[in-house]
Design a protein around this nucleic acid. Structure first.
Lengths: 127, 127
DNA sequence: CACGGAATGATAATCAATTATCATACACGG
DNA sequence: CCGTGTATGATAATTGATTATCATTCCGTG
């Protein structure tokens, strides 16, 4: 047995320690910055994401048109912040009350997502 | 001067009276159900949406990956409900308090979006 | 060490959304 | 009615994301 982690495991783990969901491409660029993964192919990233979702380890998160991001399943309830400058998505803790008040008559709500937009700390600092 | 509305005007007006934002394709199908617009082409819909945004009459709304919806600009602050069955987006009135509490240290929020998911009244009834 | 299956990388193929093209149909001023 | 410029519809082309393909590399086993 190899003592090294498979690429697949590394994809899953990268998302486990990330501070927000990532798209296939974001993840690819992120992973390649790691010396041991310099040569990872985008196909492997897509394959791992697909398998991760099938295995229930990952959850797809759709925050925008154009790309699907992924995060570890089993994170506690949280929401997201989308930086208008760097386009990164960050997890934000907590929630708010009284969302049911918004629900129109006759509608049934099964879940919700709160999206905050603006500048992340890094971009604000850099700005 | 023709007493008839141009296709462009009709696209803008359809969104003005809609109960939620629509994608180019949704709008196209919706408009074609109107006898006077049976033959409208999808290109005209895209052109009108583009021009509407340029003119400031419309605003693009991204609620999912895969498609951009549009709504009239100047609507009062509101949020959206996305039906998991029919995929339609509906406007929902109102908002909630304490969203700032969610903001991580050092981040700056310029706007927010609340998305409710579930069954719309029609689909719930039909279901 | 040879073999067979799984993992991987490069890249071609696919798919949906959107944009570009182009010939036609209109609308209006002369 | 004629010419000109805009609006429109059909459809080809483009784009970005994702998936499929295929040859190669890995790994553990016999």
């Amino acid at each position: 047995m190899s003592e090294n982690k498979s690429k697949h495991q590394q994809v899953i783990e990268a998302l486990a320690v990330s501070d927000g969901p990532m798209s296939a491409n974001e993840l690819w660029e992120h992973l390649r910055s790691n010396p041991t993964l310099k040569s990872i192919g985008i196909a492997t990233v897509y394959r791992s994401l697909k398998k991760g979702v099938e295995d229930g380890e990952l959850v797809p998160v759709e925050l925008e048109s154009g790309s699907v991001r992924y995060e570890s399943s089993g994170l506690q309830h949280h929401h997201h912040f989308l930086c208008s400058t760097c386009s990164r998505a960050y997890d934000v803790e907590g929630c708010v009350k009284n969302l049911e008040k918004l629900l129109p008559q006759g509608f049934e709500m099964t879940r919700h997502e709160i999206l905050l937009y603006g500048l992340c700390a890094d971009c604000k600092m850099a700005g």
